[in-house]
Each structure stands twice: as C-alpha cells, then as structure tokens.
Simulated scan of single mutants.
Amino acid sequence: MSSVTKALDLLSHFSAARAEIGLSQLCRIAKRDKATTYRHLQALEVAGFVEQNPTSKQYRLGPAVLQLAQTREATVPRKASTERPLFDLTETTGETAHVTVLSGTKMFGLAVCDSPRHGTRAIIDIDVFPLHATASGLCALAFGPKGLMDVALADLTSFTTETATTPSALSNTVDAIRQTGFGRAMRSYETEIEGVSAPLFDQTGQFAGAVSVASVATRFTPALEHTIKEHLMIASRDITHNWGGTIPSHIEGLWAKSLTTPHALDSTS
C-alpha cells in the first residue's frame, strides 16, 4: 500500500457517529504507529481533507471532502436517483431501506430511508459496510469483482455469534447467495437485525452497489421476507435503470426461482 493510499485510507475511519478523532485514537483504530499517522494527517490537513478542532485538538473531515462529494454527485448523480425507490421500498416493507456503493474494495453507505411505521427499527449508523457480515457486503462478494473475496478474508472480524469467521463459512454463505440473487445477513452484524439485499448495476454492466432492507429480527417472518424480496427486485431494477444499467438476465432468473422457494437461504443461518 502506497503512502498516499495509507493517508487517504485514514478518511474512511470518520463517520457521523465518529465525527472527530484524536491522534492516539486514530492510531488504535487504524492500527498504525503515531509518527506515521501524524505525518499522514499533516499531509491531509494541508490538502484540506482534514482539519483540527481548535478547542479539542481532535481531527475532523475538512472542506475539501465536501467539495469533492458535491462534484461527485453533480457529475455522477447516484444518490438523488435512489430517493424515490428507497421511499417506496420503505413504504411497502415498513422497514429501513438503504443503498450502498462499491468504491475500490469497500462498500460505502450512500442513502438511507427510515420507516416511520415502527417505533423500534433498524438504524444504519455505519459508513463502511463489512463485506463478510452485512447483506450488502455479502451481495458484493457474490456478484462483484472476484478480488473482493481476498479482501474479505483478510479481516474476518466477529461481530456476533452468526458472523462468518472462517474461509469455509464465508464461502458457503456466498455460494448460497449466488443461488438466489439476494444477499442475506442473518444477525451476522447485529444480533437483533436481519438484512436482505439485491445487487445494483451501472452503465458499465458491472456490479455497482446494493439496495437493502434491514429489519428488526423479531418482525422478520417468512411472509415479510417474501415481501421484502419482491420489492427489492423492483427497487433494484429502478435504481439500476437510473444509473444507466440493466439487471443481468441470470440475476432475474435467480430472483424468479428464489421467490418460488422462500426459504432458500435458511441453511446459511
């Protein structure tokens, strides 16, 4: 990994829940020594990618990140085109819906729509989605670039007792997803959340991201699973169309087959 890559990778540790990070904390999170981390932060600060809070002395994202984000959305308007499909998905399922995008080897959160139907609902509060533990990450492993599996295997962090933490367990989970066309995380990232996702494609014809529904596990019945899958297909088609792509015929075939066997992924629990 080059010095530039290592410096830019520090930006991925900032999130809405962790908007400011001190030097020592960032060293622990990134698993790097203090001298190297400080040098990278100085370079990022000069470029405007991070800035220091003058009061706390902690680091936060800088104005250059906002400028790049605005330019990205203006030139590749993906977020805006997800709003209506996500709203419809939330309305029809009654659960939280969200979209993630694949950038390099990471799945980043792009948009979220919370359902007002339930007082208790899934809260999406992460920016980078673990490939081996989330529905969207597993969807990427099943339908994205082959090199993603090596990335996932390099960090099989255990989040719950259901997380795939061995190569064979992860391989079996991904193989099952390839049989249905739907990513599925059965309490593997959070013990109280069940997730289902469908792949998204762009104008290149390649996997570009995933649209997902996160449900409180106690509400996740076979009937709700079937409803979620039905409307995930619609949302995936709509978003993929908005991104200039089309759903591959073999994915459409997997969906059709999966909906005639609603419990196809039960064996992955």
Score class of each variant (00 low, 15 high):
T5S: 12
K6T: 03
L11P: 03
H13L: 15
A16T: 14
A16V: 14
A17C: 12
E20V: 07
L26C: 08
L26T: 09
C27H: 01
C27L: 05
R28A: 11
R28E: 15
I29T: 11
D33Q: 05
K34N: 09
A35W: 06
A35C: 09
L41K: 10
L44W: 07
L44S: 08
V46A: 14
V46K: 15
F49T: 06
E51N: 07
T55Q: 14
Q58A: 14
R60F: 09
L61F: 14
P63Y: 04
V65K: 04
Q70N: 01
Q70G: 01
E73C: 09
E73L: 11
R78W: 10
R78D: 05
E83M: 12
L89N: 07
T92C: 06
T93R: 01
E95Y: 10
H98N: 11
V99T: 15
T100M: 06
V101Q: 09
C113P: 02
S115F: 14
S115L: 11
G119S: 12
A122T: 04
I123R: 11
D127H: 10
V128S: 10
F129A: 03
H132M: 00
F143T: 00
F143A: 00
P145M: 12
P145F: 13
K146N: 12
M149K: 02
A152P: 14
A154K: 08
T157Y: 00
F159N: 05
E162N: 02
T163A: 06
T166V: 00
T173A: 02
A176L: 02
Q179W: 00
G181L: 05
F182T: 01
G183H: 00
G183Q: 00
S188Q: 05
E190S: 10
E194F: 03
S197C: 03
P199N: 05
P199H: 03
F201E: 07
D202N: 13
T204C: 08
F207I: 10
F207W: 14
A208F: 10
G209R: 10
A210H: 07
V211Y: 12
V213R: 00
V216A: 09
T218I: 01
R219K: 04
A223P: 05
L224V: 11
H226T: 08
T227W: 08
M233D: 03
I234K: 14
S236G: 13
R237D: 09
I239T: 09
T240I: 08
T240N: 12
W243H: 13
W243V: 09
G245C: 13
I247Q: 07
P248S: 08
I251T: 03
E252T: 14
G253W: 11
G253F: 12
A256L: 09
T260M: 11
T261G: 06
